[in-house]
Structures are given as C-alpha cells and as structure tokens.
Amino acid sequence: MANDPKAYLVVSVLLFAIGMAGFLIRKNLLIVFLSVELMLNAGALAILVFARLYGDTDGHVFFFLILALAAAESAVGLSMVIALYRLRHKLDTDDLVELRG
C-alpha cells in the first residue's frame, strides 16, 4: 500500500457513489439511512488512506471521531424513524411530502 494510494481511493470513490445511488434509488427509510452511512465511511476511508500516506496521526484520530459521530447520528435518526412509524406505520420516503410548495 505504502506508495500507491490510488487503488484505495478508487474504492472510496466507488463506495461514495454507491451510497449516493442508494439514496436516490431506494425508498425505504432505513436503506436510505444506511446509504448515507456508506457515504460517510467512504470519506473516512479516504482520510485514513491519506493519513497513512503522510504518516499523520490527525487523520487516524479524525477517523474515530467520524465513527463516534455516525453512532450519534444513528441514535437520533433511528429515534425519529420510530416516531414516524408510530404516526404512519410506513417507512417510505415518498410519503414524506406533507411539507412542500
């Protein structure tokens, strides 16, 4: 790996693209949510690659911060999903159209 980060970056970009596509294509709230996490982790992977390249610890630390953040986001996100489910008994993103115009 040491001197050729390209392959890892390609993986990261691919993950990012898959996440984006998932967000656009899927309707289920949970899957959309997972797609977003995928994008976040694609970015984290790229940061790790560069951290290794430069031998810089900041990048590694940042990776852990992103992980912690993702966990916090999931907690809040999932609780909102549950609140929505209580109100509607459905988890379809296309149903979130009460607010528009």
Partner: peptide, 22 residues
Amino acid sequence: EAGLKYFLTGAFASGILVFGLA
C-alpha cells in the same frame, strides 16, 4: 417529517463535507 428530512439531507451533506475534507 421536518426532522427526518433535515436529518437525511443533512447527513448526505455531511458525507460530501467529509469527502471534501479528505
């Protein structure tokens, strides 16, 4: 609905931001 919309688009934007940072 507002919370979820904000959350999902916001997380999406965070994803872009992290990639930019990278």
